[in-house]
C-alpha cells in the first residue's frame, strides 16, 4: 500500500513540475525563469518530504532543509544582481 502511495504522489509531483519547466524554457523575461526555478525547488522539497513520509526515514529531510536554504540564497543573489548590478 505504501508503494502505491509513493508512486501516485511522485507522478502527481512530476506533473506539477511541468509548468515550472515550461516557464524556465519559454518564459518571456529572465525574471519568469527565476520564478520558475524557485517554484521548482519548492516542488522538489515536497518530493523529498513525500519520500521520507513513505519510507519513514529522516535523512531526506536534511536534504530538503539544505535545498531550501540554497534556493533562498540563490534567488536573493540573482535578484540583487539583476536589480543593482552587484551581488555584495
Amino acid at each position: 500500500m505504501n508503494i502505491g502511495i509513493l508512486q501516485v504522489a511522485m507522478v502527481f509531483m512530476a506533473l506539477a513540475m511541468i509548468p515550472c519547466m515550461y516557464r524556465i524554457l519559454v518564459g518571456p523575461t529572465i525574471l519568469d525563469r527565476v520564478v520558475g526555478l524557485d517554484a521548482m525547488t519548492t516542488v522538489m522539497v515536497v518530493m523529498l518530504g513525500v519520500y521520507s513520509f513513505v519510507h519513514e526515514s529522516v535523512f531526506f529531510l536534511d536534504v530538503a532543509l539544505v535545498l531550501s536554504i540554497i534556493s533562498f540564497l540563490g534567488t536573493v543573489a540573482i535578484s540583487k544582481y539583476l536589480d543593482e548590478g552587484v551581488v555584495f
Partner: peptide, 8 residues
Amino acid sequence: AAHMMSRA
C-alpha cells in the same frame, strides 16, 4: 524571496 524578485 518574492519581494526581492518583484522589486528586481
